[in-house]
Amino acid sequence: MFETTLVGNQPKIFDDPARPNLRLARNRFDKKALSAEELEEVTRATIQATIADQIDAGLDRVTDGRIRWDDPVTPFAAAHDGFAIGGLIRYFDNNVYYRRPTIDGPVRFVRSAVAEDFRLARRMTDRPLLASVCGPYSLAKFCTDQNSSDGALLTDCARLVRGELEALAAAGADWVQLDEPFLGRTPSEIHRAVETIAAATRNVGVKTFVYIYFTNIAPIIDRLWDLPVDAIGADCATAPGNFEALLHGPRHRGRGLGIVDARTTRLETTERLTATLDRLIAAGAADWPSCFITPSAGLEFLPHKNAMAKMRRLCESVRQVTGAVAVG
């Protein structure tokens, strides 16, 4: 009934000095004290360690932790035509920054930014994997003023993301998450946003899961159910109303519920989480085609120790209500 997974990044560094030290490796690479091959070796070891952590915590479906991603947009801006990497800007309401890409030409798919890493992660574990891409609407918004809306750019971004989804399907992915943090920030654009996402996902050959974080989706939820995707998910910590909005949706639609707050070290109690899960069961979650139970956002906002505690608590709580045995 419930499938536990992550919806974004994982901390790239560990507390244990015996584990891979990607931060040090990147510093040494920048100073030309480490070769590209040596950096790649540390990066792969970090991805392996991240997957091991998720399995240890008991997640049903794991991710590569987005270890190569500095943010949700620049990996795609770097891999495809039409983008130039610009100045630093804060990543929503977080003390985290990214370099906002600008559009400097026609946006065109060149080669997948993520398919090769999916194959790498596939070789590292037999556990089901959740791949992820930046959603087409947010890809356009990340690159421009969030209040602007350029129809041609949205069309091009949809085509680009469709290319990524097809590449992931060819690489063997069964589920792909599309990050759409800008969805809901401009409710008046929801029609255009839905069209853009639909152009990327309709009949694309892989199951798609649109995930929205840091914002309130209640005003747009009715339109989201129209999307040709297999699941809609949202951050239920930042906007508690999102939980209710997802709870009361159509029975035949899959969901993802970010019920553990990824942006605070305060650890949820098992009692609180199991009560939340009981509400999902009472609402008929067993009949939904899928129900991902996740943190509210990527766990890289937390130190590694706290991220692990959140993952473990999430999995323990699900096991408690379903009676499942730990598989980690």
């Binding site: 507390d15 931060r23 510093n27 003390n95 985290v96 920054y97 990214y98 906002f301 937390l302 130190p303």
Partner: peptide, 15 residues
């Protein structure tokens, strides 16, 4: 003081 969290790129701080 917490463990390290990333602020951007390869830069980290103790939140």
């Amino acid at each position: 003081i917490s463990g390290l969290v990333r602020s951007y790129g390869n830069r980290y701080y103790r939140k």
